[in-house]
Amino acid sequence: MLACSDLSLNRGGTQVLRDVTAVLEPGTITAIVGPNGAGKSSLLMALAGLLEPAAGTVTLDGDDIADLSPRGRARSVGYLPQSSDIAWDVAVEVLVTLGRMPYQDRRREPVDAAIAALDLEEFRNRPVSCLSGGERARVLLARVLAGEPQWILADEPLAALDLAHQLNLIDHLKGCAKDGVGMVIVLHDLALAMNFADRVLVLDDGKLAAFAAPQQALSIDVIERVWKINAEWAGKPGRHALITQVHD
């Protein structure tokens, strides 16, 4: 269980999160959504134990995440940042092997499994500079998978992907959740959150606006209140599309 309780966070002298409380279940996909600057990435980093709360706590299976050793925390929580910047032009396999760092080993099995899970076999020895944006995003996710964490916290992992690759990656994420991994994903696309997440956490200006099943958390009322747009859902469960119109 990954949970935050009355979590407040300051960054650069500004309060970015205020009294956020949520309990995230393993084996589920939780989408964090909200307008720009709502505090989504900050919440994700705080849940990963990478930002120190100004108030409140983040707990992992009941233990304060701040009390865990950096390596112990890394073994439980895999974090995929928004940036896909890679400093050195390393081969795919070398990069994925970095995922083993929390264990201080270079075990082949989890690395091979992560490469296979994200269909990266043919790129195994290719330098990352020769990959497309989508392929690179898959490699970076494979790096997290190679660490076999109980939780995967990913900041907009679908942003650089075309539609087909988005769906492909979502399938992989769902597969991980099925295997018991808790997935927490920052998303911008509300339709993706509606269709694929088990729970949706809506942030508005650093405050929790909703945390529930997608149908409730992304109701038209909430969308109009938080994003200040006219919108309506079309389609059927699992295949929803959001039809929007900006306020005059």
Binding site: A48, A74, Y79, L80, P81
Partner: peptide
Amino acid sequence: DAARSMGM
């Protein structure tokens, strides 16, 4: 950030 998340 990624390095810290890996235990650095």
